[in-house]
C-alpha cells in the first residue's frame, strides 16, 4: 500500500463527488458530498501512511456509494423533499 499521487487522489475525489451527486435522496446526497469534501481536505497534507490508508478507504467508499446509489434510487419516494421544492 503506497500513498496516492496528487492526480490519483484528485481523480478519486472527483469520482466520489460525481457518484454521490446521483443520490436522489436529499439528505444522503448532501451528506455524501459533505463528507467527501471534508475527508479529502483532512488528508490533503497527511503523511504517506495516513494518506495511503485514506486512499484505500476512499476507494471502498466509492464502490459502496455506487451500490447504494443504485439501491436508494430504485426505492426512492416519488414525492420530493420540501428542501428540493422552490420556496414560495
Amino acid at each position: 500500500m503506497s500513498a496516492p499521487t496528487a492526480v490519483q487522489a484528485k481523480s478519486l475525489f472527483r469520482a466520489l463527488l460525481r457518484e454521490g451527486k446521483r443520490f436522489q435522496h436529499y439528505n444522503v446526497r448532501e451528506y455524501t458530498l459533505r463528507r467527501a469534501r471534508e475527508s479529502f481536505r483532512q488528508y490533503q497534507n497527511a503523511d504517506e501512511a495516513l494518506a495511503a490508508e485514506a486512499f484505500t478507504k476512499g476507494k471502498q467508499d466509492f464502490e459502496l456509494t455506487k451500490r447504494q446509489v443504485l439501491l436508494y434510487n430504485t426505492y426512492h419516494h416519488s414525492t420530493p423533499s420540501v428542501m428540493e421544492l422552490k420556496q414560495s
Partner: peptide
C-alpha cells in the same frame, strides 16, 4: 425517474401534492 424528477422540480406547485391525515403537504 432521475431525469423527469430533475426537470419537474422547477415547476411551481399549483396545489399541495400530498394529503396525509387531513394535512396538505407540499413535499416530504
Amino acid at each position: 425517474g432521475t431525469a423527469w424528477q430533475k426537470r419537474f422540480y422547477v415547476a411551481v406547485p399549483e396545489e399541495a401534492p400530498i394529503k396525509v391525515k387531513g394535512i396538505e403537504l407540499s413535499g416530504r
